[in-house]
Amino acid sequence: MTTTLNREDLLRAYRTMRTIREFEERVHTDFASGEIPGFVHLYAGEEASATGVCMHLERKDYIASTHRGHGHCIAKGVDPVGMMAEIWGKATGTCKGKGGSMHIADLSVGMLGANGIVGGGGPLICGTALAGKLKADQSVGVCFFGDGASNQGTIFEAMNLATVWNLPAIFVAENNGYAEATASNFSVACDNIADRASAFGMPGVIVDGFDFFAVHEAAGEAIERARNGGGPTLLEVKLSRYFGHFEGDQQTYRAPGEVQKLRETRDCLLQFRRRVTASGDLTHDQLDAIDADIKALIDDSVVRAKADPKPAAADLMTDVYVSY
């Protein structure tokens, strides 16, 4: 074995990453038809981050996401069929067609939701982490955010509070190099977002986001430390997205051939496949079977989403407030 992960773990990791990739590639294709309402922000290329982190999480653990949240949702266990219906604005969607891409949430699996507010997840995770600490159930909270959100006061305040209260919280900075169209080396004052961890009295770790195994190891250490009372960690995952900030973004701010080169040389799925087949842990046939299975799943989810009903006018004022 090339890793402490067993064969079932490796198959689950690949299935999760392949589900995210197939889901995103299909949304990218279908959005161009003009049938999908609203905006979508795709996660393709970043699969190793969500998967490597969330494989350590249990149902009792919570995550808070970003506007680029499909990958986090799938990795935390949200049903991709319901997600597809939600993106198509259908009543059968995860949020009954009322949230769309940027607001998918499923509290039953610990997904607090994607968030249109940049950096909005930090305070939410402090809340869930505090609840876990008070209940002494060893649950943790994970806040995913991007390099743009790394400059937001909400993130600074949340990291400070997490240390002051010694909360079981992990802050995962997914640094894909661009805050919308602004390069992080132009907008972020320090070279590494993780370097800011020392200001908040927590460990700061940098990891290669194209390498699932590196993310999995670093996240595992941070999550175990948080569960055992060791407090928060700032984990910076350096990676890249394949599509624009939003669908329709022409990415003129990126160098010619930049994305294609990344796909060919650093893709997290290809790296994973090479490693586990070279070691003999998994075979190409096993991985190919997962590819075919996931393609069929996503194809079916689109067929169902297109046929499903839209929310009715009577649904407009429902689910606005929570009844306790």
Rank of each mutant, 00 (worst) to 15 (best):
H103A: 11
G229Y: 04
T277A: 15
D195N: 08
I36H: 15
L124D: 13
E224L: 03
H67V: 14
A64S: 15
E22S: 09
A32K: 12
T16F: 04
C126P: 10
A219Y: 00
D288H: 10
T94A: 08
S187H: 03
D293V: 07
V302R: 09
C143L: 07
D319I: 13
N166K: 05
A75M: 15
L5F: 15
V140L: 04
L262C: 12
T252S: 11
I104E: 03
A75I: 02
I87K: 03
V109S: 13
S33L: 13
F144A: 02
I206G: 10
A136G: 09
L270S: 10
I74C: 14
I170W: 11
H216W: 08
G113H: 08
E58K: 14
K133W: 03
G141M: 06
A278P: 00
M55K: 09
I155F: 05
E86G: 11
A313G: 15
A222W: 10
T2K: 03
E46P: 01
M55Q: 15
T4P: 15
H56G: 12
L57C: 11
G257I: 04
G34C: 08
G113N: 12
D315H: 08
Y14V: 09
G38C: 03
G122N: 09
L42H: 01
S198L: 07
K60C: 04
F156A: 09
P311H: 06
A305Q: 05
A255P: 00
N176Q: 01
G248E: 05
Q286G: 02
V27L: 10
N175P: 01
Q152D: 04
D61R: 06
G100I: 09
N176C: 02
Q251G: 14
T128K: 04
Y321S: 03
H72Y: 11
C54N: 06
P203N: 04
A158P: 06
T3Q: 05
F212W: 08
F213L: 04
G69F: 02
Q250W: 05
A162W: 04
N115A: 08
M159Q: 06
G119P: 01
P256V: 12
T4L: 10
V215D: 04
D291V: 07
S240V: 13
R254P: 02
G127I: 13
Q286A: 03
H67W: 12
I193W: 13
R227D: 01
R274C: 02
I170H: 00
K306A: 07
D9V: 13
D147Q: 06
A305E: 05
D299I: 12
D300S: 06
F212C: 02
D315S: 01
L42F: 06
A105W: 02
L134K: 00
A219S: 08
V215F: 14
A289C: 10
W88H: 11
Q138M: 14
I170Q: 02
G69Q: 06
G119W: 05
H41A: 12
S240N: 08
A218I: 10
T252I: 02
